[in-house]
Design a binder for these strands. Structure first.
Lengths: 219, 219
DNA sequence: TTATAATGTTAGATTTATCTAACAAAATTG
DNA sequence: CAATTTTGTTAGATAAATCTAACATTATAA
């Protein structure tokens, strides 16, 4: 069984993996907020337990076993976030920290009960997919709002960033998943958008914000 | 902040403390399932952080700070057990293991929400009192069933032991907190009792079982 | 009340997860 | 393509939590 620390490395590796499934030591060190030698020694340990493939001076790659384990930890994290929001009344900006701890609990029935009580949700409160019990992730390809054009109508479906600050910004503008937005115009100079949605006419959204909003185009 | 390991020592110290608030190193070692030298070095660490008082060759005593910390961990444990039973549908025999992990989560709001959702319960599923937010415990003095006499009627209020095996035994006899029992007779030879309660006439309960059942006499 | 048993301590080793300093390889760029 | 920068590795140290072996103190009991 992976230690709590190892679980955090696996999860981070899964999230950082690029199209080739590779992660650099330096990226991992930055994300985990530890030094490169620490990562170096940890990837050797993880390799011994067949969680990943490592060769000197090469980026690391999770094995199938490693990927599955990581996905199951992410599953616990996202189920917890959804449970906290839907069953315990937390705001979407409050749940990450708690889920970060709850995800390490070893008690399959605990998470199965959450899942059941929520009716087997497929996404978490930030629109990210919840891996299934086999660790499979249903990948949905949303568009970032910044790729959309003036005149289009879209539904806010997910976020590419879920920092507390960003979530609080969205709260302040009354933007939540499911909100239907119509793009009035796109400013050529800075790519900011002006949009209209329930309760808000001509709300300006900076490019930075638009890049972090994932949408489904409906018109 | 106490580490998870330190939290476990504090909790165990609290539970083992006798009338003088003292705990022997050997008891603690046995309960924690570690060697005496491990305990010896840990109590020195705990003393440095003012969790307890330690003098060579003397039993250790929790400080006020240590007692409060321990009580607050026990509070998280018992709130969790109650939440698992009342809000998530677990059986009372399933919750200890999960609570043992959840009690170490640092997220005051998480436990406050549980507390709120349950209407601020004062006992856990096994009848043990839940310490309040200040770490104060309301001590209730129940009688063990074994101290009662033939002819008395009692209500099952709490347990002195909550092992899975004992809880499963109680389940098998349909005994739960709140059950009203009438003692038909007490066997002189082995102190076993014959009792009657809803759905059960003349159920025999061994002395071992009677000692573990805490009751309130009502007639 | 002394011998024995039980309890507690010290010393020193181990594992895990981390660090800094020094060095080596790979990538970038003038 | 050689110099420099970035990235990665090795060596060695540290702190936490554990162990065993050996020794010391306290308690018990003949």
């Amino acid at each position: 069984m992976a230690s709590q620390t190892e679980e955090n490395y696996l999860k981070t590796l899964f999230n950082l993996a690029n199209d080739k499934n590779e992660v650099n030591i330096s990226e991992l060190a930055a994300q985990m907020q530890v030094s490169m030698p620490t990562v170096n020694s940890m990837v050797k340990t993880l390799q011994k337990n067949d969680w990943l493939i490592y060769e000197k001076y090469k980026p690391v790659i999770l094995t199938q076993k490693g990927k599955k384990e990581a996905a199951l930890i992410i599953r616990k994290h996202r189920l917890t976030e959804m449970f906290l929001v839907n069953k315990m009344g937390f705001g979407w900006e409050e749940v990450h920290e708690i889920a970060e701890q709850v995800e390490h609990i070893h008690a399959p029935k605990f998470f199965e009960r959450m899942d059941e009580m929520m009716g087997f949700p497929t996404i978490d409160p930030h629109g990210s997919p919840i891996p299934d019990k086999q660790g499979r992730i249903q990948e949905i390809n949303y568009l970032t709002l910044s790729k959309c054009k003036a005149g289009q109508t879209v539904i806010l479906a997910a976020l590419t960033n879920s920092s507390t600050e960003f979530l609080e910004f969205l709260n302040s503008r009354e933007l939540s998943l499911g909100t239907e937005l119509t793009i009035n115009s796109v400013e050529n100079y800075d790519q900011s958008m002006v949009a209209t949605y329930v309760g808000h006419t001509s709300e300006t959204l900076s490019e930075k914000v638009c890049e972090r909003l994932l949408v489904r185009v409906i018109g």
